[in-house]
Design a protein around this nucleic acid. Structure first.
Lengths: 144, 144
DNA sequence: TCTATAAAAGATATTTTTGTCTTTTATTTC
DNA sequence: GAAATAAAAGACAAAAATATCTTTTATAGA
């Protein structure tokens, strides 16, 4: 469904939301541990998300990653688009370039439904909401 | 959603269903052209599907690939499982190993719904049905 | 202003996926 | 049975995704 890169990105965003909700910042090493991802790899990913304004960061001592109030409202759709592009939102399920409502591939109509559900879900789900469920221990990012 | 390998596999299966419905067989070269895929690559994929009994084939002159009556009833789920494994049916959306109903990842519940829809769709959709729609020119596998 | 810290940037390495080519085996037709 | 055909099998190659390491830049705090 998502690339590994995207999975890490989503996990990291939720984790950062959680750890920075008191205004503090969280470092790469802790993020990597917290979401069980390769340290250097998630660093690269967050760098890119930072460039796109999806996550905030500060260099230097007491620096690290954090989410401002607006970033907490980021939808999963925004993250997925930033990392994986919009193939999942609009690409053909069978990989055809010329697939459309007018010239549908054999799976087009079935896929349209599913894609709509996925899109809705990703649009309505915000990082901040997921973080709250995590806080209440209703969900988990690792073994714990 | 699916790997490229899987996309080619599904497209090839539908195409073979169409070209072999009169009992004839169709060669790799024509399949590759018909579904717009790399020739040697789809050959490999069909080899593997042949080994698993998903597609039938014959060597030698007048040989080629075809689908018998039971193979026409193959669901997309069977093809996807044979090629991509069952990650799409059961894997965690965020890539967590220990994700389950009891120990859900932040997206677990939302994903459960979507995965159920996808699974249902793949289970109920049969190669033969897709081939018929293709025959009626209701859907397409290439530009045409 | 100097030092320590932590992210940014850039380079490199590994693995997986995708794609290609060559040789072998089975089958048909003559 | 020999020649031609087409898939099977095995080896190889390229590209993309994933992962790691090194150097640079910004910032805080002494």
């Amino acid at each position: 469904m998502f690339s590994k890169t995207c999975e890490y990105a989503i996990r990291a965003m939720i984790f950062i939301a959680q750890k920075s909700k008191d205004g503090s910042k969280i470092g790469i090493r802790e993020i990597a541990k917290g979401i069980d991802s390769p340290e250097y790899f998630i660093a690269k990913i967050l760098q890119e998300l930072g460039r796109k304004g999806v996550v905030q960061s500060m260099k230097g001592p007491t620096g690290g990653f954090y989410l401002d109030n607006s970033a907490r409202k980021t939808s999963l759709a925004t993250i997925v688009k930033a990392v994986d592009g919009d193939n999942i939102f609009s690409g053909c399920g069978l990989g055809l370039k010329q697939c459309s409502d007018k010239h549908p591939c054999p799976l087009h109509h079935e896929f349209t439904k599913i894609r709509k559900d996925i899109t809705n879900m990703l649009n309505k789900t915000k990082v901040g909401d997921l973080q709250e469920e995590l806080d209440q221990k209703l969900t988990f990012l690792r073994r714990d």
